[in-house]
Design a protein around this nucleic acid. Structure first.
Lengths: 207, 207
DNA sequence: CCCTGTGAATATTTTCACAGCT
DNA sequence: AGCTGTGAAAATATTCACAGGG
């Protein structure tokens, strides 16, 4: 089991390598990869060493084979089922985001409790109330939930999702979720991102 | 100058404290805050100690005064001007996201080079081509750029933004940007987030 | 008495540096 | 000759533990 930081970097190496492959580059050294990502070659080597011995001394890494290894390790050879919880503006934008399908993530269900949204069709998916969660998760083979619900609803929704057996949540609500240890939550908290930038702006202004 | 991790946590403490204040709680100990966020009391104390001595031994932290201190440190007492680059689905969702304005971030310009979008009005802002960037940044006092452009355009857009003097970027494009050291980029890379979850799913499946 | 603020200790992460493979 | 893989060293980050203040 790799630690979170390592996985975050592996995901990025994978993307960089796919970019290079698209440009028909066949081999890359740890130094080359590090340069593109503004990191150290030693870190790239150490991270990649977790995949087993994949580099060729004197040459570097074969890009195609490294991508294959990363795709396997990261679970990107499979297609995962995603449910969207919250059929608002942000939910719609994510639903149409082309990067998800390309990487093997497939929206298979959309939930919303707002009666004006229930029954609407987004592509070939019908918006349903969250009461149908358990059966849909089973029938549609849902693995991941993307939560774009209002902050006051987030914890309750998370409880229902984990009760339905989901263990991977991507949460856009500005709330720290209380979940069991075996559940993974990733936070995509957009206001927090801006507040981090704000600190820098403020610090600059004070100097 | 605080390090990135500390600032990320301060931003979160600030949100938690505002939640508590809304519930009319007046004081909180480091242990209470830590419990809500699943962190250690020592870390909360050390982080907050960077603000100067703000806690009362034997009692804890006065929530109202701590929020004030955090708002000042994080630059949240000011209103910052934000430009949106890329008037697509995701851009629209962010434009309407209520959390931004509430925290003092104000969209003041929208740029897009797509002729079908130029001239459209979003609320009282008109979408303009990015050629007008420099003058708009000056006139509208833009501090932060939110980039929701396609990946192939991202680096070029980032170059233009920094050339116009912007130093704080929130980038939604799945690309590592090459920028000068004094420019801060935060990445909101949604496919990466799912890929991180995918690793966990895969790892679970293999066990 | 209880909790803060903080040096010291511990744990984790990153980098160094080099033996060894191609 | 050039680059990987990796223990050892260095740098960071977190936690401990307690002196001191309200």
């Amino acid at each position: 089991m790799l630690n979170r930081h390592t996985v975050e970097r592996l995901v990025i190496y994978n993307r960089v390598l796919k970019d290079l492959a698209k440009k028909n580059v066949k081999w890359a050294t740890s130094e080359k990869i590090a340069e593109i990502l503004f990191r150290s070659p030693a870190q790239v080597r150490k991270d990649l060493s977790f995949l087993g011995k994949k580099g060729k001394p004197g040459v570097g890494y074969n890009i195609r084979s490294l991508i294959g290894e990363l795709d396997s390790t990261l679970g990107l050879r499979k297609t995962w089922g995603v449910a969207l919880i919250g059929a608002g503006n942000l939910g719609r934008a994510l639903f149409h985001y082309p990067g998800f399908k390309r990487e093997g993530f497939e929206f298979r269900a959309i939930f919303d409790n707002n009666s004006s949204k229930i029954g609407r069709r987004w592509g070939d998916i019908t918006v349903t109330p969250i009461t149908s969660l358990n059966s849909v998760v089973r029938k549609r083979k849902i693995n991941i939930a993307v939560m774009t619900v209002p902050d006051y609803a987030a914890q309750e929704v998370a409880d229902k999702l984990t009760a339905a057996g989901l263990k991977e949540l991507l949460n856009f609500a500005p709330v720290t979720l209380n979940v069991a240890d075996n559940v993974n939550v990733r936070y995509a908290d957009l206001a927090l991102e801006l507040e981090n930038l704000s600190y820098n702006l403020n610090h600059r202004a004070l100097k």
